[in-house]
Amino acid sequence: MAKWGMVIDLEKCTGCQACTMACGMENSRLPGEHWQDVIFYNEGEYPSPQVKWFPRPCMQCENPSCVAVCPVRATYKNEDGVVLVDWERCIGCKYCMVACPYGVRFYTEEKPAYGGPDMKQVFKGEQGRSWNPPWRMPDSKEDWKHGVGVQPHDVVSKCTFCYHRVSKAPKGTADLDPSNPALREFTPACVVTCAPSARFFGDLSNPNSEVSKMIGNKNGVRLLDHLGNKPQVYYLTGVGGAVPSNRATNKA
């Protein structure tokens, strides 16, 4: 079994949001409902203000609080270390959203996050889907047991590490490198699309994987590590990058 994880090099990330767009197209996200997002935030005050950005997918935690709190076991961690939601079990209680420290879970039934028009009304859902985006993935790839595709009404959704791609990767693959044509179609969309190649995806349990080596050699750090959720997404800060030490709330 693999233990899929991601490494994001913050010195390379330009904050272009291409990953956010690619994720939205790949996973049929509602506008504003970003499974993958680049958070912009500011720290410090005049004369030393800092404007920063920070790419934030689901952290796919080793100790996911969302899994522990789900009263119906709809959220679970699969054998490859990915946290998924079974949309056929989810009761929409939103406890996982309350318990997630990273704010990466989304409830279907909400007012438009971006102010409208409401895409769910413009593209009305069919066959149990909450809406019917014109760019949605082929029906054959939709997999509600693993939270893949356009979600039904009244459930919670989240980043799946592109489960529909990654789960098809050849067994024993150490790294899913998008520059390798043989592996590209198994690599998460955000990693494939990242123009400055700031994202890396591989097996954290494999000592020979590039991601394992990068974390070890370049001091990979995790977001809000003090909470003990142990994300499987690591960040390389180098000289110019920084991981927010708190919720990235404007304290000024």
């Binding site: 958070i39 912009f40 935030y41 500011n42 919720r247 990235a248």
Partner: peptide, 14 residues
């Protein structure tokens, strides 16, 4: 208990 945003950056800055 929920009014402090949970890691939303400047999208929800206050």
């Amino acid at each position: 208990g929920q009014i402090v945003p949970m890691f939303k950056g400047n999208w929800v800055s206050s």
